[in-house]
Design a protein around this nucleic acid. Structure first.
Lengths: 223, 223
DNA sequence: TTCGTACGTTGTACGTCGTACGGCGTACGA
DNA sequence: TCGTACGCCGTACGACGTACAACGTACGAA
């Protein structure tokens, strides 16, 4: 609407990311985005080839926010930092979660990060094959965890409990029969989650360390 | 088009899944789906509340294809089977990947599976907290891995290599300077992947075992 | 100063989407 | 036989991505 200066790819992408953060990815519409830039919808096409390329550009800006690991220093600590940094970036930009691992048209920031991670692992003594595996395991976990977090809407799993009860209820099962039909689910829902709310950062680091420790044991092995 | 019998929720969902498998999730349109059923678009609304509910129903059909773990038998073997079964289901229905871990409105098959997994873990000696953690770690990995696989388009990473080169090229960097700018990436791309093509099933099981073994060590511990 | 050219911008328009609404036929209990 | 309820669908509306052609304006050459 208001801030009409000269358009540019930079400005378009920045505004698009901000809009997606504010109102979700489905709010990022060519018309809507152009409005926010004080421009007409078609003007965007002179700075971005189309909607798909716009999304790609947005994703690469998220990649650029991720702290790459340094080749000097303990590989495990570096990988840990990279993982936490990635989670934080995905936390700031949840709309990016399903889009970052699509290897088609990787942006420059994506490439730089890949390079840094591979270098860190190789210099720590992993073979090429093992480095690829180690990278894949970590990323699968990180992005998968982010997927779960996004699905939970950043609340604890209390909402899940609520919805689950409702769901079970409308399956013409009484609410206290939840415990009869799904006793273990009920145990988790009632006992664990509702109380101390399942700290998400801790849970993430727990799984991360399981993986990192597992990889440590395999470093330098045959495989 | 052709097969016009009586419509039903069952038939609608089955056709929707088949259509998504055949031509991708973006082909699943109310009109397109109705055509395939030999019906008009608006007829679907008498068997499904709307597009969102349709997607939810499709996802729960995928959940129903996953083999739940049995409470009898080695927990690790059961979890392993469950994980492989999940990967296979996601492989058959790649469009489901980003949608299955959304805890909003879980379907009956989703609930049954959750129950079975939690039961298996609890009876193997995991505390409630540890069972939740263990579940979370596994699912994050499984879904994250599926995400990566989907992004690769089920080819090997050769395509990535190709696209990466192109990308680097159009960043006004000569093609053989790829190795200069991203030596470790080039090492992977040229050396490892192109040759024996990075067997995806093996890679999945590798990471899975890293996690499962890590969890084994933690079973029954304090935490 | 004038003018040709190139480029950023935009209004309009087309085809597609999800779906609200109201009318249509038909099967079935009274 | 007929009223009613329900499965079905044609039409229409607003929003989407974007092709296209017209418009303004900045700027180097004359």
């Amino acid at each position: 609407m208001a801030p009409s200066a000269r358009l540019s790819r930079e400005r378009v992408l920045r505004e698009a990311v901000a809009l997606a953060d504010r109102e979700g990815i489905e709010a990022v519409t060519m018309r809507r985005l152009a409005d926010g830039l004080g421009a007409g919808a078609m003007s965007l096409y002179h700075h971005v080839p189309g909607k798909d390329a716009l999304l790609d550009g947005m994703v690469d800006r998220v990649f650029a926010e991720i702290e790459p690991p340094s080749p000097n220093g303990d590989w495990k600590a570096e990988m840990r930092r990279r993982a936490l940094s990635t989670r934080e970036a995905l936390h700031r930009h949840p709309w990016a979660v399903g889009r970052m691992e699509s290897t088609k048209t990787p942006g420059p920031a994506d490439l730089r990060l890949h390079e840094a991670v591979l270098r860190c692992l190789r210099e720590a003594g992993f073979s090429v094959e093992m480095a690829v595996q180690a990278y894949s395991v970590q990323d699968a976990y990180i992005y998968g965890y982010a997927l779960q977090e996004r699905g939970m809407g950043y609340a604890t799993q209390e909402q899940f409990a609520e919805t689950a009860s409702q769901r079970v209820e409308q399956m013409d099962t009484a609410i206290e029969e939840l415990a009869r039909a799904y006793p273990y689910l009920a145990e988790v829902v009632a006992g664990h989650v509702a109380q101390h709310g399942h700290n998400l950062s801790e849970a993430f680091e727990f799984g991360l360390d399981v993986i990192l420790d597992g990889l440590e044991r395999l470093r330098g092995d045959g495989v």
